[in-house]
Amino acid sequence: MGDGDLASELVEQLRRRGAPCLRLRRPTDRELARTLRDVPRFVAIISHDDIYALRLALVAEHAQPGVPLLVTIFDATVAAQVVRTVPNCHVVSLADAAAPVLTADCTASLPTTRAHQRLWSVATSQLRPYDASSRLLVYGVAGLAAILGAETFTNALAFGHPLTASFYDAAKATATVGPDTIADEGPAGYATAIGALMLISTALTAAATAGLINRLTTRRLVALVGRRTLPRRDHVIVVGLGQVGLRLCLMLRQRGVRVIAIERDAAMANVHLAKRLGIPVMIGDGSERGLLTRLRAQRALALASVTSDDHVNIAVSVAALATRPDLRVVLRAGDDDAVTETRALFPIGVVRDVNRLAAARFAEIALGPTPC
């Protein structure tokens, strides 16, 4: 059952292996129950709508209890309900079949890294500004800290005051809440310099405050500290945060590879899920060369474009190879001939037909392993 490209590919795979196959594109409950009167060897329900697939699985189980079922469901909560209610059901998804192959393609040239190298990679990605608000916040705070430190040590070393007293006076001046009594007693030139620094501190405080307010009042998918910071090198850029893209990000992270996802649609459900899972996401166009440069594609381990649109994947590949000609690029391909035709003209990367990969896996579940 199913009316998409994946269902068509599965029918082809089954018939190629000699299995008689009946396809229902979008059956009603009554039509499905009538068809299952002749007990089939196996029932496969292929749908991108998890709830629709769940309903068909329940109807099939009610019409023919115990019939072996294969149902494509991505959401773990829905999948758990199906398995609990229909124990004779194999719950799979397109992402389950395609992500392991795509992960292997992305990590084919994975260098051997030690624990301290991975820790260094994480440490160097902290507090790295990536947009205007983060730059205001980071540079504003860094500037205030530099002024505070310089004034504290100047008071302590040049004028011989205790470090605690020097810090207290410097903090008052930096925060513009009180005078620096050490500067009041010092040379006129030093007092002038401290006055100028107080004015600069006012501007830096305003900048840091503006950056902080912006970050607090808008949804942030990339963090300045923690797991959702932007990696700087030996990472994988995943374009497209659908089912395949999200599962690919998770599998790469399990392999110890840092990832950054690019998604055009900020309202997509997987964007919010990725945030909860600690995956950094940039909202934008993956075929934009400037964005790929900001994400350090020139230092990346690989780039995987796994959107459902072949033309978008081709555009991403072209932009990525323009950023770095020897970058390892992995593309998801569908039934469109655009990828094949473009690939014949010039190399665009490693191309994987995810529908064929998934259909072969599903056929193996239904009929058993292919005889050698």
Rank of each mutant, 00 (worst) to 15 (best):
G2S: 10
G2C: 14
E9L: 08
G18R: 10
G18H: 13
A19V: 11
C21M: 08
L22A: 03
R26G: 12
T28C: 10
L32S: 00
R41N: 11
F42A: 01
V43N: 04
V43P: 06
S47V: 13
I51D: 05
Y52V: 14
Y52D: 10
Y52E: 11
A57P: 03
L58V: 01
Q64D: 14
Q64M: 12
P65H: 08
V67L: 06
V67F: 02
V67E: 04
T72M: 08
T72S: 12
A79R: 00
A80H: 14
A80Y: 13
R84E: 14
R84C: 13
P87T: 13
V91Y: 01
S93A: 13
L94E: 09
D96M: 04
A97F: 02
T107E: 10
S109C: 08
L110K: 09
P111D: 08
T113S: 06
Q117H: 15
Q117F: 11
R118P: 04
R118L: 15
L119F: 11
W120K: 13
Q126L: 08
L127N: 13
R128E: 09
P129T: 00
D131C: 10
A132T: 15
S133I: 06
S134Q: 07
R135A: 15
Y139L: 14
A142P: 02
A145T: 15
T154V: 14
T154I: 15
A156H: 10
A156I: 05
L163V: 09
T164Q: 05
D169Q: 07
A170K: 03
A171I: 09
A171H: 04
K172H: 05
A175V: 03
A175K: 09
T176R: 12
P179E: 05
T181G: 01
I182K: 00
Y190G: 11
T192L: 13
G195H: 12
M198I: 13
M198T: 13
M198E: 13
I200R: 02
A203E: 10
A206T: 03
T209E: 04
G211Q: 01
L212F: 01
I213R: 10
R219Q: 15
R220N: 12
V222P: 01
A223K: 08
G226I: 06
D234E: 15
H235L: 06
V236A: 09
I237A: 07
I237H: 04
G240K: 00
L241C: 07
L246Q: 07
C249P: 06
C249D: 08
L250R: 09
V257L: 11
I262N: 03
R264N: 05
A266I: 13
M268S: 07
A274M: 14
K275S: 15
L277W: 03
L277E: 09
P280F: 09
D285F: 02
G286P: 04
E288L: 08
R294F: 04
R296G: 04
L301W: 00
A302R: 00
L303H: 00
S308I: 07
S308V: 11
D310H: 06
H311F: 12
S317N: 11
A319N: 05
A319T: 06
R324D: 02
R328C: 14
V329S: 06
V329G: 02
R332W: 07
D336M: 11
D336F: 12
A338L: 07
A338G: 07
G349I: 02
D353I: 07
V354M: 07
V354T: 12
V354F: 03
N355K: 08
A359E: 03
R361V: 09
E364G: 04
P369D: 14
C372I: 15
